[in-house]
Each structure stands twice: as structure tokens, then as C-alpha cells.
């Protein structure tokens, strides 16, 4: 297509939008709302997943050994356990290290109080593995495996947190995908209606164009431009709003729910918008084009 033709079609697309201001505005608003909600869901879901990931990375299983275990057996166990798929990292804490830690926590700067235990480590049996998991869901399998290992006296794992967290994450994901799908359908429908009105208004003009030998593409291009521009406008507006709101909302959440601070780790604006911006533009432009093409297939037989 020639540049001039392209410019002419863009101009005609703008003329369509202007002629049809109210409907165009309604379409832009609907798509803006859709994409605003998509953006919100996205921000919530990615942040939620990020939190779960962070929590999961903190999630660990601790094992203690039989009293008479040899250092060789400990090494052997460490090797075996670290080979498991569930395991992301395994740390060994010797009895001495455990005592050092304990002293630090409970005696603090009054270290001299602990001097009495100097040659008689009260935590002599407290050497342990701290095993970090790849995925919270794998905890049960790993615990079962650890319990049947020879030389392991006790396995400590947090009971239900792990699976509850990942179940909730999945549910939130499903619900938001369903809602977004419904909203997208509404967006396509509204753009389709806007374009249909444009086609109806320009029926005579289109008829004349056909008789004069305008190509299908030439007749359709202005409507595609119209759909695309409405879709993009519907994406840019909520992006701006979300961009301005994002940090404020996080600040608000943290100030309102102080208890969250320990678990709530949020992604930065840049990290969220790095994905959200192209996603919103593609979705907006996509439903714009899709809506107008579907409508033209139905109502614009050229």
C-alpha cells in the first residue's frame, strides 16, 4: 500500500471516530475499563505469585539426626537429599553452630552467662539439615521420604501453609482469567457495534466506492484503523491511571495492614509495567482490530 493511501485511510478512520463520537467514546471507555481491570488483576496476581515465591523460598523442612550418627552418614544423607527434585538447597548446621546461634538469640550481649556451658554443649544433639523446597506442593513427598531415611530422628515441617498458599494462588488465577475473558468479549462486542454504526452511516459511500472499483482492503482499512485506534486509546488511558495509582495503592496497603509487612513483598512499578504495557497495548489493539474485522465480515460484504 502506498504511503498516501495509508494516510488517507488513517484520516478516514479518524473521520469515522469523529462522526461517531458518542459510540467511540463508549467503546474507548469500555475497553479502558476492561484493560484497567486486567491491569489490576495482573498486578494483584503477579504480586501474589511473587509473594508466594518469596514465602516458598523461605519455606523449609528441618531434620534432626539420631544421637549416635557418624559424620560420614551425615555427609551421605546430605548427598542423597540434595539429589531429590523437591530440594532447591540444603544447609547443614552442626551442633556447635546451633549453640552459637542459640547463644546469640537468647543471651545476646550477655554472652558471659553462657560461659557455663562452654565445654558441655546443651544442644549436642541439635545438628540439623535445613532443606529449602522448590515448590510448596512437594513438601509432603519430601517429608515422607525423609522420615524413612536411616539416621534421621525427627522431621519438622510447617503443616498446612504450603498447600493452602498455592491453592489460593491458583484459584485467584482462574477467577481472574475467567473475568478477563468475559470483559474481553464485551470489549469485542462494543467495538463491533461501533464499527457497525460506522458502516451503517457510510453505507451509501461504501456502495459508491464498490461501484467505482475500490479494492476490499481500501474500503475496509478505515474501519480497521478506527477499531485499532479505539482499542489503543482504551489501553493507554488505563495504563496511565494504573501507573499513577500503583505505588499509592501499595503504600496504602502497607500503611493499613501493618501485619502484612512481614509477608508482603511487592514488585516495583517498573517490573510490573515492563510486562503490563506491551500486554495492554496488544490486548487493546487486538480487540480493536478483531472487533472491527469480525463486524466487517458480517456487515460489510465487499
Amino acid at each position: 500500500m502506498k504511503i498516501k493511501t495509508l494516510l488517507y485511510n488513517i484520516q478516514q478512520g479518524i473521520v469515522n471516530i469523529k462522526r461517531n463520537k458518542l459510540f467511540s467514546l463508549a467503546s474507548v471507555a469500555t475497553i479502558a475499563i476492561c484493560i484497567f481491570l486486567i491491569g489490576m488483576f495482573y498486578a494483584v496476581v503477579v504480586n501474589f505469585n511473587y509473594m508466594i515465591d518469596t514465602l516458598e523460598s523461605r519455606l523449609c523442612v528441618t531434620t534432626f539426626f539420631d544421637a549416635d550418627i557418624s559424620q560420614e552418614r551425615v555427609e551421605e544423607l546430605k548427598n542423597d537429599i540434595s539429589k531429590r527434585v523437591e530440594v532447591s538447597k540444603i544447609d547443614y548446621t552442626s551442633a556447635e553452630e546451633a549453640w552459637e546461634k542459640y547463644k546469640e538469640i537468647y543471651f545476646g550481649d550477655k554472652a558471659e552467662l553462657a560461659e557455663g556451658f562452654k565445654d558441655d554443649n546443651p544442644l549436642a544433639d541439635s545438628a540439623s539439615f535445613t532443606i529449602y523446597l522448590n515448590d510448596a506442593e512437594m513438601q509432603d513427598t519430601l517429608v515422607k521420604y525423609l522420615e524413612q531415611l536411616e539416621g534421621i530422628r525427627q522431621v519438622n515441617a510447617s503443616a498446612n501453609t504450603a498447600s493452602t498458599l498455592s491453592d489460593f494462588g491458583k484459584l485467584a488465577g482462574y477467577v481472574s482469567v475467567a473475568l478477563i475473558a468475559v470483559l474481553l468479549a464485551v470489549g469485542v462486542f462494543l467495538i463491533g457495534n461501533t464499527v457497525m454504526i460506522g458502516i451503517t452511516v457510510r453505507k451509501e459511500e461504501i456502495g459508491i466506492m464498490k461501484l467505482m472499483g475500490a479494492t476490499d482492503f481500501f474500503i475496509r482499512a478505515p474501519f480497521m484503523v478506527e477499531g485499532l485506534m479505539i482499542g489503543l486509546a482504551g489501553a493507554i488511558i488505563p495504563l496511565l491511571v494504573l501507573y499513577l495509582l500503583y505505588n499509592r495503592i501499595i503504600g496504602y496497603l502497607l500503611s493499613q495492614f501493618r501485619s502484612l509487612e512481614t509477608v508482603a513483598v511487592f514488585l516495583s512499578t517498573q517490573e510490573v509495567f515492563k510486562v503490563l504495557t506491551p500486554m495492554a497495548l496488544i490486548i487493546g489493539g487486538g480487540i480493536g482490530l478483531f472487533g472491527s474485522i469480525v463486524t466487517m465480515r458480517k456487515h460489510l460484504r465487499v
Binding site: 451509501e204 456502495g207 459508491i208 464498490k210 461501484l211 467505482m212 472499483g213 475500490a214 479494492t215 476490499d216
Partner: peptide, 15 residues
């Protein structure tokens, strides 16, 4: 469209 470019059309109601 190429065929229609070969034919000029005039109508009763001008269009």
C-alpha cells in the same frame, strides 16, 4: 474492482 474501474456508472438518483 478492476472490472468496475472499466465501467463508469450514472444513476437516476445521482448518488
Amino acid at each position: 474492482p478492476m472490472l468496475r474501474r472499466d465501467i463508469g456508472m450514472v444513476f437516476q438518483n445521482f448518488r
